[in-house]
Amino acid sequence: MKRRDQVKTKSTGMMIQSSPHKSGLPVTNKLGKEDVMKNNWKALLICTAVVALVLLMGTSTFAATQTLTINATVAARAELTLAPTTINFADASPATSPNITANTPVTVTANVRTAKASTATLMALAGTDLTSGTDTIPITAVTWTASALPFIAGTMSHTSAQSGATFSAGSGSYSGTYTFTLANSWSYNTGSYVATVTYTLTAP
């Protein structure tokens, strides 16, 4: 039996074979269409089932969760600011002015970061007595008051550091003012006296 042509359908891959009538062979066209139709319906059912399954899968999960870990590092540090950094005691009669107030209060800002159980310190240490050439005024003649806690009043010293604040444990930011006073005396020789005080803020 010799057949003249072959048509391969794309959709099903089924081979349809046909012959010319004049050959006297059976016509297979009618049978081929029925097969294609059946296969098309099968393909349709399968596709529908797959689409439905995919869509229904969407109903089972419609939320998603992820976690983001946030880390932060905080290290110990201290920052101290005094303003102004120079003060002056004007000349005055000891009789009328036994105490001379400095020309300006000093604003102090202390920022500390330390452990929760640790306590920062602020210490003041004069380098020398007030000095003018060979003349001196004891630095202990200089005292100060503080506006409010944690800053505290004190007396200057060049031998031992004096506490300028009593901080509570842990970190914090503090601001206040110191007001300095010089005890006046007839015994002071004339001159321009100078001393430098070093303030140290420590955050352990």
């Binding site: 976690t67 905080v74 970061r113």
Partner: peptide, 25 residues
């Protein structure tokens, strides 16, 4: 872009926390 407000009041140490991020209807 995440940012952390910085503050002197933070005590020293290493801090951590998780953020649960959820996509939902």
């Amino acid at each position: 872009n995440f940012t952390l407000v910085n503050d002197w009041a933070y005590n020293t140490g290493s801090y951590s926390q998780t953020l649960t991020v959820t996509a939902a209807n």
